Amino acid sequence: MSSQERSQFEHGQAKSEENINTKDFLIGALIGGMVGAAAALFLAPKSGKELRNNINEQAVVLKERTGQLRESAMSKGTQLAGTAKEKSNVLAQSVSRQSIELVNKVKSIKPIESLTGGAEENKTAVSNKQGANNDEIQKKLEETKKAFDETEYKYNH
């Protein structure tokens, strides 16, 4: 991972932590507001009918607010999942491109004939080594894709 990609990743992590802290604050403020409103309603000197009406009105307001917060959280979650998916696709393409370049570089290296063996033995050895490298690269790409898929699943759920 290049230093620029690492910097972007760390910046994204910092923003994610900041969003989580903001979310925690909003949830705490909402709960504190509900507790405060309930305490004010119960401690206010009103008749039973007025108190029930006020509780019903506050319940409707609270339901509307929670609906708005839920929709906001869902849209932000979808947006974060989309961003994570986009960045993971860019990273996967970059890894794939770099691995292809590496494979091409390895293929372009010409074997040197050994003193004891012929050119055929060297070609076979290089071919076997390239096949092993290709398998290893494919395995690493599959592991990376699996990690990205798991991350995407976590963001979506």
Rank of each mutant, 00 (worst) to 15 (best):
L91G: 06
E121K: 13
L80I: 08
E17N: 10
F148E: 05
K110A: 12
G36E: 04
S16C: 10
K145T: 12
E10L: 15
S94R: 09
G28V: 00
L80A: 15
A59L: 09
F42K: 01
N134D: 06
T124A: 15
T144L: 14
N104L: 08
R70Q: 12
L69T: 01
A37H: 00
I27N: 02
T151C: 10
S75L: 15
E113V: 15
E113H: 05
E150I: 03
S47P: 00
N89C: 04
K105C: 07
S3K: 07
K154C: 00
K139I: 01
L41I: 04
E120R: 10
S96Q: 13
Q138M: 05
E50N: 03
G36H: 02
E10D: 12
K145C: 00
Q58W: 04
E113D: 07
Y153N: 14
K154N: 08
V95Y: 05
F148V: 06
L43H: 07
N19R: 11
Q4S: 12
Q68G: 02
A37L: 06
D135C: 01
F148K: 02
L41D: 02
R6H: 07
G118Q: 03
N134C: 04
K63D: 07
H11N: 11
A37Q: 03
Q68I: 11
A40M: 06
T144I: 10
Q138E: 13
K123W: 05
K123R: 11
A59C: 04
A81S: 14
L80Y: 13
N122L: 10
K107H: 05
L43M: 12
S2D: 11
K87L: 13
I112E: 15
K145M: 05
T22C: 07
T124V: 15
K63Y: 06
A40L: 05
I55H: 01
E57Q: 07
K63I: 01
M34N: 01
G36M: 02
E17K: 13
K140I: 05
E152N: 12
E136T: 06
S7W: 06
D149R: 05
T116Q: 14
N134H: 03
T124I: 15
A92Q: 08
F42Y: 06
S16W: 13
K139F: 06
G118K: 04
L51Y: 03
N19E: 15
K76L: 14
S47R: 04
T144F: 03
N89G: 08
G12D: 11
G117T: 15
A14C: 06
K107P: 04
K123I: 07
S2A: 01
Q98P: 00
K154S: 08
L41W: 00
F42M: 07
N122K: 13
S114C: 11
A37N: 05
N89P: 00
S75R: 14
A132T: 08
G131H: 05
K146N: 08
G118E: 07
K145S: 08
Q68M: 10
L51D: 00
F148M: 09
N134G: 03
V35H: 03
G117A: 13
T124Q: 15
